[in-house]
Design a protein around this nucleic acid. Structure first.
Lengths: 198, 198
DNA sequence: CTTGTTTTATGATTTTAATCATAAATTAGA
DNA sequence: TCTAATTTATGATTAAAATCATAAAACAAG
């Protein structure tokens, strides 16, 4: 999103997080801007009885956790490294200074937030009114355009576990497994030794 | 959000919409920035069998429909006047020029998008993992902070119909009615001649 | 003031995904 | 390389909200 050079010019520091390490927690006040250098980060909530909902997954060059930073509100979710990851951290004050002095970056931030809001809008409508097959397909098709799914001779490889798909769509693993099977039977996607292609 | 003066300086025009009139439709390409002067606007989707999901409701001074404008993508939902409403329209080109020439406005836009993303994040987690009582309460408590609910001697008046609450939370009217009754019985909210207070 | 529409309400029934139970296959870790 | 943990899988059962049916109350429009 923002070039590493520019971030470092304003004092951003690289920090490493091990697999499953917590980057920040729901309820805390934001203090930094975060941008992924390498690895994979998920933002998610856990409800009263431990069930997870994944808000989003972030890869190289993507930033996360800005909304509460701009609003002086607590984080609505946790950020956790899915794999060993390197993250650039810039303090709030320095980040705000960077924005003031680089108006072009503001436009970038706007576009990024707009993209994420667009995704949330589409998924919210899906999750509230559509049946499982519809939800799962929508997530996959969004992922093709937005996450780094790679195409090979079988189509796009949906690089999520059934559990992750469930946590992103609000469905249970068993339901996701059955739904994917049903979609395969209808010829809408392919399953080649347990991997899903679209 | 943006002052009327500034918008008009860039050529924004006032347009009136009657109750239930469509402002823009899902699938169309955005051409303008929209800001409410008076009245009430809802953005919503209709699924395959006509069921509605309300993305958001917008009142005086609030803007809507910007994300796809920034992304050159089609609208993911419809915008409809809930009451007779007056809206300021600014063409995309002029809006972009306004942003370039007024960096402080960019920050305002960022804050606004951040606020909406925050709401969507919270509601997405609620809708996917929580039971009806939890969802309905979360919506109401958000509404108190964000929509223009007014406080009187009975508490905050939840100025939504049961149907609207259902369309915002992904629940059916009957379920909302029963849920609200259950919450009243528990003393979590009040119902005074059919109106809900929190 | 009458009529039509929307909103709130309640009971009975159905449907669908969640839950529960169990296990094979695969992957990760020590 | 052996073991533990995760992922995929499938069948049976349950629970919870959706659906269906029906109606009274409130409101809006003419």
């Amino acid at each position: 999103m923002i070039t590493v050079d520019l971030l470092q010019k304003y004092g951003a520091l690289k920090k490493s997080f091990g697999k499953n390490e917590i980057i920040f927690e729901e309820g805390n006040l934001p203090s930094h801007y975060y941008q992924v250098i390498s690895g994979e980060v998920k933002m998610s909530n856990y409800n009263d009885d431990g069930r997870e909902f994944i808000q989003g997954i972030f890869y190289k060059d993507q930033s996360f956790g800005e909304p509460p930073l701009f609003l002086n509100q607590n984080y609505p979710a946790n950020a956790i490294a899915v794999d060993d990851s390197e993250i650039l951290l810039l303090t709030k004050n320095n980040f705000m200074k960077l924005l003031e002095e680089n108006p072009a970056v503001s436009i970038k931030i706007i576009e990024n937030l707009a993209q994420r809001l667009y995704y949330k809008s589409v998924m919210a409508a899906e999750m509230s009114t559509q049946e499982p097959e519809h939800r799962v397909l929508k997530l996959m098709d969004h992922g093709i355009a937005y996450f780094n799914f790679k195409k090979d001779e079988n189509g796009y490889l949906i690089n999520f576990t059934r559990q992750q798909i469930g946590d992103l769509t609000g469905l249970r693993v068993e339901t996701v497994i059955r739904t994917i099977k049903a979609l395969e039977k209808k010829g809408i996607l392919k399953i080649i030794n347990r991997k899903v292609y679209r």
